[in-house]
Measured scan of single mutants.
Amino acid sequence: MTEYKLVVVGAGGVGKSALTIQLIQNHFVDEYDPTIEDSYRKQVVIDGETCLLDILDTAGQEEYSAMRDQYMRTGEGFLCVFAINNTKSFEDIHHYREQIKRVKDSEDVPMVLVGNKCDLPSRTVDTKQAQDLARSYGIPFIETSAKTRQGVDDAFYTLVREIRKHKEKMSKDGKKKKKKSKTKCVIM
């Protein structure tokens, strides 16, 4: 069974824990209790493949930012979460993405942009803004509501699919490099 290491990042209060708990335990946590770091595991079937999701729910508070490099190193894919009623959390996505790329030393890291709290009427981040940002990053965008469960499975499952595509691409690139290195030079 394939294991996928997913990391949920975003500013404090955007609903990272609520999304994760909704996926794992099928219930909505409405009281806000700032996370330092929590880890969850769940076995699911995605596109006919049974897999184990190892999900790291991270601290959004700035005082825990020193811990970010460590979990970013171990993560295979990242859910970059903002709240649709919090423009600052949307603007912060850029910083999370840049930090992930720096730590992973790669421009090509599996990510999904997630606009959470889409059940709320007080939207300050337009869907088109988020779609445009995701398009500019070359990553999928999904709106979710941890409260109603809308888009929750889709967000995590899409990230797994992005990781699969990335692994497939990397193995193809690896095979191309191996083929090239088999060419021999004969000096007579």
Rank of each mutant, 00 (worst) to 15 (best):
E63R: 00
E63A: 03
E63H: 06
E63T: 07
Y64S: 15
Y64R: 02
Y64Q: 13
Y64D: 12
Y64C: 15
Y64T: 13
Y64M: 15
S65C: 07
S65V: 07
S65G: 11
S65R: 03
S65W: 04
S65Q: 07
S65H: 07
S65Y: 06
A66W: 04
A66K: 03
A66I: 15
A66F: 07
A66D: 07
A66L: 12
A66S: 06
A66R: 03
A66C: 13
M67A: 02
M67C: 04
M67R: 01
M67L: 05
M67G: 06
R68S: 15
R68E: 14
R68M: 15
R68I: 13
R68C: 14
R68A: 15
R68N: 15
R68Q: 15
D69F: 00
D69Y: 02
D69E: 08
D69Q: 04
D69W: 00
Q70W: 06
Q70L: 02
Q70F: 03
Q70Y: 01
Y71I: 15
Y71S: 10
Y71E: 15
Y71H: 15
M72K: 02
M72N: 10
M72I: 14
M72P: 08
M72R: 02
M72A: 15
M72W: 06
M72Q: 04
R73L: 06
R73F: 07
R73Q: 10
R73P: 03
T74I: 14
T74R: 06
T74E: 08
T74K: 03
T74S: 12
G75W: 06
G75K: 03
G75D: 02
G75I: 14
G75M: 12
E76Q: 06
E76A: 08
E76M: 09
E76I: 12
E76T: 13
E76K: 04
G77I: 06
G77M: 12
G77P: 01
G77H: 02
G77E: 00
G77D: 00
G77L: 08
F78Y: 06
F78C: 02
F78R: 01
F78W: 03
F78D: 01
F78N: 01
F78L: 07
F78I: 10
F78M: 06
L79W: 01
L79E: 00
L79Y: 04
L79M: 05
L79A: 05
L79V: 11
L79C: 05
L79T: 00
C80V: 14
C80E: 02
C80Q: 03
C80A: 05
C80W: 09
C80M: 10
C80K: 00
V81K: 01
V81P: 05
V81A: 07
V81D: 01
V81Y: 02
V81C: 11
F82K: 02
F82H: 09
F82D: 01
F82Y: 11
F82E: 02
F82L: 08
A83N: 14
A83F: 01
A83G: 14
A83T: 08
A83Q: 14
A83P: 13
A83C: 06
I84M: 14
I84W: 12
I84T: 14
I84Q: 14
N86K: 05
N86V: 02
N86D: 14
N86E: 11
N86M: 02
T87G: 08
K88E: 12
K88C: 09
F90G: 05
F90S: 05
F90I: 08
D92A: 12
H94R: 10
H94L: 10
H95R: 12
Y96L: 15
Y96A: 05
R97A: 13
R97Q: 11
R97L: 15
R97S: 09
R97V: 15
E98S: 06
E98L: 03
E98D: 09
E98M: 03
E98T: 04
E98A: 05
E98K: 04
E98F: 01
E98W: 00
I100S: 02
I100C: 05
I100F: 06
K101L: 08
K101S: 08
K101I: 03
R102V: 06
R102A: 04
V103Y: 04
V103G: 05
K104N: 11
K104M: 13
K104W: 14
D105W: 03
D105E: 11
D105A: 08
S106P: 04
S106E: 12
S106R: 07
S106F: 09
S106V: 10
S106Y: 11
E107A: 11
E107N: 10
E107Y: 13
E107S: 11
D108A: 08
D108S: 07
D108L: 05
D108E: 10
D108F: 09
V109G: 03
V109P: 06
V109T: 05
V109C: 07
V109D: 01
V109Q: 03
V109M: 07
V109L: 05
P110A: 03
P110H: 05
P110F: 02
P110T: 04
P110D: 01
P110S: 03
P110C: 04
M111L: 07
M111K: 04
M111N: 01
M111A: 01
M111T: 03
M111H: 00
M111V: 08
V112W: 01
V112S: 00
V112F: 04
V112A: 03
V112D: 00
V112L: 06
L113W: 10
L113I: 13
L113R: 00
L113S: 03
V114G: 01
V114T: 02
V114C: 06
V114P: 01
V114K: 02
V114E: 00
G115I: 11
G115V: 11
G115P: 03
G115E: 05
G115H: 04
G115C: 10
G115A: 13
G115K: 02
N116L: 15
N116R: 01
N116S: 13
N116I: 12
N116C: 15
K117T: 14
K117Y: 15
K117V: 15
K117I: 15
K117Q: 13
C118P: 05
C118M: 11
C118G: 10
C118N: 10
C118Y: 08
C118W: 08
D119L: 02
D119I: 01
D119P: 03
D119Q: 04
D119C: 06
L120A: 12
L120G: 14
L120M: 09
P121I: 07
P121F: 09
P121H: 12
P121R: 10
P121W: 09
P121T: 12
P121D: 13
P121G: 13
S122D: 11
S122N: 12
R123V: 12
R123C: 13
R123A: 13
R123P: 11
R123F: 08
T124S: 12
T124F: 09
T124N: 11
T124D: 13
T124Q: 11
T124P: 09
T124V: 10
T124E: 12
V125Q: 10
V125P: 09
V125E: 12
V125D: 11
V125S: 10
V125Y: 11
D126F: 08
D126N: 08
D126Q: 07
D126C: 09
D126H: 08
D126I: 07
D126A: 08
D126Y: 08
D126K: 08
